[in-house]
């Protein structure tokens, strides 16, 4: 396979996700559509033509990489949408017990992500006992945006992926302050032995939870990233395999398709965000 040298970090992560998608997947995505929708469109173009894309409120395939249909910037832009999917219908999710599987794949971010693969979009706990800010007794130092439907999506979808635009000890913590999506420790207690995030992609590498004790391990590190860096930037002890592969670079074919579907520089903007945060 020919490897491309002209790629950016956002494209690399999109390729990692795309390669893990298959024909039987039904993909939905939320924020940072570049990664989720980008990966789904790339997989459709290259190896999974029958993969289906269903997004919050819009359904279709072969659409250009663009913002969700509700954030309408173009006059009459809504006409590009194949059909509107109502929010309540969308939330039939991928419940395996329902004949209406909304999606089997979802992408989840977090203000915090822990060694068990739990995510937190709820908030950061106030560690200072008494400050002006928390005079009213609020437990939050920082209030997060909220979990949207990520807890139910992670539960119902066959495959869920975690992503983070930052890889720092503040994000990758031993244990999240509040649980949006539960990690392997809680899930195992509940009897869900096989339930875990499929992969986690960050600016430093690719990680998974396919370990005996359910803790996060390194799957590959991106070109130029040292083990020392990733260890220093992670707030817990990572499981380190005997041999650490380098994340496979995007191929020329992948880069050609990625530039076809993103003509407005979405990957470049995401790359900037990742390298400057």
């Amino acid at each position: 396979m020919k490897q491309s040298v002209n790629y950016n970090l956002a494209q690399l992560l999109t390729c990692v996700l795309a390669r893990d998608l298959e024909n039987t997947d039904i993909v939905a995505y939320g924020l940072h559509a570049e990664l989720g929708l980008g990966a789904a469109l790339l997989a459709q173009m290259l190896h999974a033509p029958y993969l289906r894309i269903r997004h919050g409120l819009r359904a279709g395939s072969g659409l250009p990489l663009s913002a969700p249909a509700w954030s309408e910037r173009m006059h009459q832009g809504w006409k590009q949408v194949d059909y509107w999917e109502e929010h309540p219908d969308m939330l039939l999710w991928g419940n395996p017990a329902s004949p209406e599987t909304f999606s089997t794949v979802f992408f989840i971010g977090g203000m915090q992500i822990d060694q068990w693969g739990a995510t937190n979009l709820i908030g950061i706990r106030n560690r200072v006992r008494s400050t002006k800010q928390n005079a009213a007794g609020s437990p939050y130092a920082v209030r997060g945006p909220g979990s949207v439907g990520t807890p139910s999506a992670a539960f119902f979808c066959k495959k869920y992926y975690i992503f983070s635009l930052m890889h720092t000890p503040k994000v990758f913590v031993p244990e999240v302050d509040y649980v949006s999506v539960p990690g392997t420790n809680r899930l195992q207690e509940l009897g869900y032995l096989d339930k875990r995030p499929r992969l986690c992609v960050t600016p430093l590498g690719v990680f998974d939870w396919d370990t005996r004790d359910g803790r996060m391990q390194i799957r590959s590190l991106h070109p130029g990233v040292s083990l020392e860096t990733v260890v220093a930037q992670t707030g817990f002890n990572l499981q380190i395999p005997a041999r650490i592969p380098v994340t496979a670079l995007p191929t020329k074919k992948e880069i050609v398709q990625l530039s076809r579907l993103d003509q407005q520089g979405a990957f470049e903007r995401l790359h900037e965000k990742m390298t400057h945060s």
């Binding site: 929010h87 939330l91 009213a136 609020s138 209030r143 909220g146 979990s147 439907g149 990520t150 807890p151």
Partner: peptide, 20 residues
């Protein structure tokens, strides 16, 4: 965000599926 962080308004959060 500030109103929640400083406890100015009562507030409950849930999964959107639970709310639906």
């Amino acid at each position: 965000r500030q109103a929640i962080e400083t406890g100015q308004i009562a507030w409950q959060e849930s999964d959107v599926y639970a709310m639906i």
